[in-house]
Amino acid sequence: MIEFRSVTKQFPDGTVAVEGFDLVIPPRKTTVLVGSSGCGKTTLLRMINRMIDPTSGSILIDGEDTASLAPVKLRRRIGYVMQNSGLLPHRKVIDNVATVPVLNGVPKKKARAHALELLDTVGLDRSLAGKYPRQLSGGQQQRVGVARGLAADPNILLMDEPFGAVDPIVRAELQQETIRLQAGLGKTVVFVTHDIDEAFLLGHQVVILQKGGHIAQVGTPAEILARPADDFVASFVGADKGKRKLRIERVDGTDVVVDENGTPTGVLQP
């Protein structure tokens, strides 16, 4: 469990990214922080592994204040996946995946063997192990990034808009993969995105953020859709434009689901 307790972050240039933020992130579930750019979602994520330290307030992981932990040690037990993968360009795929275990003192041979298994886990062919990141496609690099995040078998996996730079088809694949991995491995995933559909797809708990890290609403996707807390949320999820208000129309004996504007979105199965 990760707990934010009245966390505030003011950057040296004066911008207040986050103010008085409280949130409980349940274990073994996916929590998605979603909001437009500048809402402080990445700042919140990076405070969990102390890439950024809060100006005030505290963050607890399983009841332990992270301020009392050494940042480097903390980071090694938390997986981190970022946009554009952040792979080390001068290391082969397998060594990129094995980075953290090697840092933790695992013998290289053992770390590499484990890294090969992780390539299987994230759906990459083992033949890619000897390639350099540049030789991979964007989607493949992103998978390597996920494998690297999982390498030290962390309980927590932080994902910062990991699929923002890949094309829609690959993104859809990676999203399904993420769901499968989370369900299979039971990690606590904290996921940052600006895409509400991605948030609803992946999140058990979705946190909609407004500027300054103010929480507009927290809940399951169904709860948020059923009762948007205010106009902002309604607009953010698209409820005000009729995109989320569906009704059934009967066409040639089949129930077709259409939105408020009459645009068909699917067929109702009996």
């Binding site: 480097v72 090694r76 037990r77 554009n84 993968s85 952040g86 360009p89």
Partner: peptide, 18 residues
């Protein structure tokens, strides 16, 4: 060096010296 690479290295838990 791409700042993202350095950032990623730090996020992985490398010390400054590493």
């Amino acid at each position: 060096i791409d700042r993202k690479t350095i950032d990623a290295a730090r996020a992985l838990g490398m010390t400054e010296l590493q």
